[in-house]
Structures are given as structure tokens and as C-alpha cells.
């Protein structure tokens, strides 16, 4: 145990560099997946057949490809097509695209849960599609969508570790590098696990808060 604390003090600063990158990847891909997910969801509920079919097939294609393959594709294949991305860019883009499919389905479920009478009331005072969405549907859908959105945040935090496969030196990769050069596997990976857990706890509490708020009307 004493050894662990000693190792922890020694490795903590290096691992914190990893934490910084983990946070950058998580927040970047969270924002991207939210924007893309919203776009897919809006296309899905637009009532325009071409758009909703396009969105549905996009979602299925994205869902059907493992994140790690998506990352490899962006980082190793895109340069052959003339598009060179930094490892960090590829990681954010890959995770953002991968999670946009789940975000879209989540948003769609929230939008479709809104009572049809709400939409009719909006129409009856002359609101068009976009105004109805903006003023009536989306503000109510947010309450429904937030708890699962919080869960996605937790999953994305952990899945940001997949960026290590394309050389992004985030927490998992930093840990692996230290472990393989010092052979102190137990100390290092225990520390890494604890650091992920520490970052997850505020998010877990946030989800609980969202759930409580959604529960009361």
C-alpha cells in the first residue's frame, strides 16, 4: 500500500496530462455528437420522406460500425484520400460521429413523446414547423432527453479511451506507456481506474439530478 502511494505521487502529474486530453476528447466529441444527433433527429421527424429515410440509413450505418474501426478509418485511411487529420481531430470526429447515432435516437424518442395535442395547439395559433419545434416541442423534449443524455456523457468519457488506439495520449494511453516502461502495472492501472471513476462521479450525480427533475411534473 505504501508502494502504491509512492508510485501514485510519482505518476500522478504525467497521468494528469492524460486526463486533460481525455477531457478535451470527451467534450469535443460530446458537442459534435449533440449537434449531429440533433440534425439527424430533426431530419427524422421533419415529415419529409427523403430526409427521414436518409437520416435513418445514416444512423444505421454509423451504428453498425465499431468505434475503433471508425477511428482507424479516419486516421489511417483518410490520408490516402487526401484528408490528413491530427490524431486528436480524428478522435473527436470519430467518437462524435459514432455517438451521434445514439444521440439522434434519444432526441427522436424525446420529440415523439410530446403529446400530439401540443403540436395541434401550436398549429392552431398559426405556428409553422420550425416555430412549433423551437417554442413548443424542443423545450418540453429536453426534460425527457436529459437523463439518457447524461448516461451518454458517462459512456463517452469512458469510450474516449479508444482514442488511445490512434495515438492520442489521453489517460488510458498515458497509463499504458508508464506501465510498460516501469512494469508497475498494479499501481498504474489502479490509479488510472480511480481517475476515470473520479471523473464519472460528478456525471453520475448529474444524471441522478436530471432523473429526479424529469420525474416530478
Amino acid at each position: 500500500m505504501k508502494g502504491f502511494w509512492h508510485d501514485a505521487a510519482e505518476f500522478f502529474p504525467i497521468l494528469m496530462n492524460g486526463v486533460a486530453l481525455t477531457i478535451v476528447v470527451t467534450i469535443g466529441s460530446l458537442l459534435l455528437s449533440t449537434v449531429l444527433g440533433l440534425i439527424w433527429a430533426m431530419m427524422r421527424v421533419s415529415g419529409i420522406k427523403t430526409l427521414s429515410m436518409l437520416s435513418a440509413s445514416l444512423i444505421n450505418v454509423i451504428r453498425g460500425i465499431p468505434i475503433i474501426v471508425l477511428l482507424f478509418y479516419l486516421y489511417f485511411v483518410m490520408p490516402d484520400l487526401g484528408v490528413t487529420l491530427s490524431a486528436l481531430q480524428a478522435a473527436i470526429l470519430g467518437l462524435g460521429i459514432a455517438y451521434s447515432a445514439y444521440q439522434a435516437e434519444n432526441f427522436r424518442a424525446g420529440i415523439e413523446a410530446i403529446d400530439k395535442g401540443q403540436i395541434e395547439a401550436a398549429q392552431s395559433i398559426g405556428m409553422g414547423w420550425w416555430l412549433t419545434m423551437r417554442r413548443v416541442v424542443l423545450p418540453q423534449a429536453v426534460r425527457i432527453v436529459l437523463p439518457p443524455y447524461g448516461n451518454v456523457m458517462i459512456m463517452m468519457l469512458k469510450d474516449s479511451s479508444q482514442a488511445s488506439t490512434i495515438t492520442v495520449a489521453e489517460l488510458a494511453l498515458q497509463g499504458k506507456l508508464i506501465a510498460s516502461s516501469t512494469f508497475k502495472n498494479t499501481s498504474v492501472f489502479t490509479l488510472v481506474a480511480l481517475m476515470y471513476l473520479t471523473m464519472s462521479i460528478p456525471l453520475i450525480l448529474l444524471v441522478r439530478h436530471f432523473e429526479k427533475r424529469a420525474g416530478k411534473k
Partner: peptide, 18 residues
């Protein structure tokens, strides 16, 4: 839109924005 702004509607289930 023109017609809907001239002819209002009151619904059975109120449909107020909660």
C-alpha cells in the same frame, strides 16, 4: 397560417403549453 390566425381553436383537452 393566415386562416389559423383568424380562426382560433379551443380543444377538449385544453392543450396548454405546460
Amino acid at each position: 397560417v393566415n386562416i389559423r390566425t383568424q380562426v382560433s381553436m379551443v380543444f377538449q383537452r385544453f392543450n396548454l403549453f405546460p
